[in-house]
Design a protein around this nucleic acid. Sequence first.
DNA 1: GTGGAACACGACGACGTGTTCCACTGAGGTCGTT
Length: 471
Amino acid sequence: MDKLSEILQQKFGHTSFREGQKEIIEQVIAGKDVVAILPTGMGKSLLYQLPAYFMKGAVVIVSPLLSLMQDQVEQLKMFGEKRVVAINSFLTYEQKEMVMSNLAMYKFIFTSPEMLQNKRFNCALSSISIAYIVADEAHCISQWGYDFRPDYLRISNWLDAFPEANVLALTATATQKVVDDIKGTLHMSNPFEFIHSLDRPTIAYEVQKADSQKEKEAWIMGRITTTNGPGILYTQSRKKAEYYAYELEKKGVKVAFYHAKLEQEDRVLVQQQFQQGDLDWICATNAFGMGIHKDNIRQIIHDHIPTSIASYMQEVGRAARDGKQSIASLIYTNSDVEQAFYVAMKDFPDETDIHAAFQSEEYQILLPETTFRILSYWKEILSEQETIALFHDIKKRKWLEIQKLFTLFQSELCIREQILNTFDEQLTTKPKNCCFNCSLDLQQLLTKREYQNLENIELNWFNRINELLRP
DNA sequence: GTGGAACACGACGACGTGTTCCACTGAGGTCGTT
């Protein structure tokens, strides 16, 4: 048995590697930069965990969510690794000081892109030896960096302080544009690239067009109340997620809603209940998904046009992790394109905002928080004209992407094939249940289910009490 | 930009039609203060 397999068995209890894992791990150990695109459930964590045991120094893992960090810290501790810490706002000032003063003790250091801008933290990091740096869920660099969390783009400058460390970028879905963004931001020159096929033959694609919002709602309610989950209904707004959860609950469906405005404890609770099977459906915004461990999701429904093909695939990819047949359905109306564009654009500064922000600091403070944050970042590195040009470009790109997605859903060609082509991939074999435009046996795909309508039960009770009280 | 609700209007009263207004609209982390 070679050394890698030995550690795999000793530390992680696996007897063999999955496709691509060994190759990637070898490249990381050899000191190469690596971009690895692997579907959810293909063992991405192992790719950064295992090489650490062959290299001197610590591993810094940049993660987008606090919950994801906690999750991974716990997972490593379960494997018996004690030298692991997450440095983020969950720690008090005193705890942070304590960890930073003893940073050399740790093998795995999890942190957020925001934290990488902390001077005290950087000072501590520069005093220890770093083997390699990991960008987990690296698509966030491209997806969030430009218009939401500019600290993702600041990783670029931060990396200059660690020229010796190689970088490993991990994600489940990335178009060529996203890969280019990742490589650029992480200063990767000639990295080893492992790109697993994005095609998931056990996910069938269904697209439905509705003439009105009412028709759309009726279709969604009908589908969820007559067929089996577990499933996720992705809505475009928090309000809609709550509305559907409320309506479905009345029909007897075990359901909860999930979005960014939920308290942290409620989020954890909903997530756990769904994972344990106590809930059949989650009505959620795009906040739901990263770090969800559930293998048997059978249905993903979208009630809108997503803002990018990559995020659509991320969301759809949460189904069928157990390899069993599942279905991804999307229902839209013509006006949904405009809605998607509005949502994608609403925090972007317009030309007047950019001009005013470059003229006066006070004006910038009047802007919405996200807009202010984005502008502050670009003001540091670009001129006013360059910033205007940049946002013009980003807006145009977003609009084209949404349009492309809309055209794709409207087209009569194979949906699977078109999606794969967007990711520069060719479809080699069509599964039996491919898509709405090829072949789709809905009766086979969707198991019938009857729910007990709680509205009727309440009504019956109301009638019975009335009868009893009648003089 | 769209869609739905509310309102105005015509004309002997209810209701269809046109106009106006307003709601819709994601994602996370950190710091300092209460």
